[in-house]
Design a protein around this nucleic acid. Structure first.
Lengths: 208, 208
DNA sequence: GTCTATATCATGATAGAC
DNA sequence: GTCTATCATGATATAGAC
């Protein structure tokens, strides 16, 4: 029997928030259970009481991050609008989304490369699948073939996502190489990014 | 006095090669000194004899990886050729380079995000600086302003590198999402990538 | 230079009292 | 449910013989 349900779910949430914070900042290997416990203001042992192991706790956080990174995609594919409207909508929503949590892409990328099999396992176990999305975009591109320069749907999707995501996952290098460590100029660049990508992609794809 | 110089430099190189292999595969935190020693077919203690600590050994490997990731850039900027020749040359050389060591970008990205201050420290300590390159490209773009659509040099460089690098750093996700785990189709996509990027960027930038 | 053996420390995890 | 105390393990690093 649960003694104090309200308090315990509260504790559970505090742990999850703390874990999210620490895991996203330091990754699975870098994160310490002690630090998560401190952040949640509880004892280390409680972590194992609520979540059996570090790995299980991590999975909860990781799945949350992945799901958070792709919520607007559903809207995107189901929308019944002209092709370019959908693309611009995607770029707009997707960049806004990343900007709210700029380190999540790097987090996902880090863990994805650290243990690729585990990534696939987690995605499957949690029914996270984007193949449908790719298929829909493929169909859309097929329909628009007359007005677009020839490009395979896979390359198109790749280009789109690369242009959106890369400035965030490579942030430290970009700041140093391109802006000589000036964070303000980096931020300004990010602010311009939305319009730049839209113009760039449209121009790249339009038949002349 | 060194007893056997030839043998010891040989050992040193074996260690470096082994460390490179393990560090790049598992990252700084995931790598184990034991595994590096095994891979080099020597004892753990010898690692500390040649390189004082794990951190110093890692730095050697990391700097090597960064330098390896940007060798053709010098040729690129000093080349005295038409703008588009240089761009195409860059894309061609850069993609070939990555393809020879496909996991290096992910490695650099992982460590860059794990410890950004350390990245900057290492880059500075080893005089790795690309600001000049950015400057040269900026000048080039400025000269060609008449024939190109307006875009800031920073965004242009970012787009170029993003399109080249992203398919490699996000490889596991791409394989799963876009190709449903089919490695052959992923490889085929990479093979087409060079031409796709060249066409895409040219089309995006050309004034009509 | 290279090895074996060991020190030292930090971590994830558990036992058991309350 | 929550805590303190402790275990078990595995890691980096060092001492010291050869």
């Amino acid at each position: 029997m649960v003694k104090n349900k309200e308090l315990s779910t509260d504790t559970e949430n505090r742990i999850l928030e703390a874990a999210r914070k620490v895991f996203i900042a330091k990754g699975m290997e870098g994160a310490r259970m002690q630090e998560i416990a401190d952040e949640a203001q509880i004892n280390k042992a409680l972590l194992h009481y609520y979540f059996r192991s570090k790995e299980l706790l991590f999975e909860k956080v990781f799945v949350g991050a992945v799901q958070h990174a792709f919520p607007s995609i559903a809207e995107f594919i189901t929308a019944d609008r002209p092709f370019w409207d959908k693309i611009e909508f995607f770029i707009d929503r997707y960049l806004s989304l990343i900007q709210e949590n700029p380190i999540i892409p790097a987090f996902i990328m880090q863990e994805m490369n650290r243990d690729p099999e585990n990534l696939v396992r987690i995605l499957k176990r949690n029914s996270i699948n984007f193949t449908d999305i790719a298929t829909v975009i493929k169909q859309d591109i097929g329909k628009e073939a007359g007005t677009l320069l020839p490009i395979s749907p896979e390359h198109f999707i790749l280009n789109l996502v690369a242009l959106c995501v890369f400035p965030f996952v490579a942030a430290p290098m970009i700041k140093h190489v391109l802006f000589n460590g000036d964070s303000d100029r980096y931020s300004q660049m990010l602010a311009e990014r939305k319009q730049v990508i839209i113009s760039f992609v449209r121009s790249a794809m339009e038949k002349r």
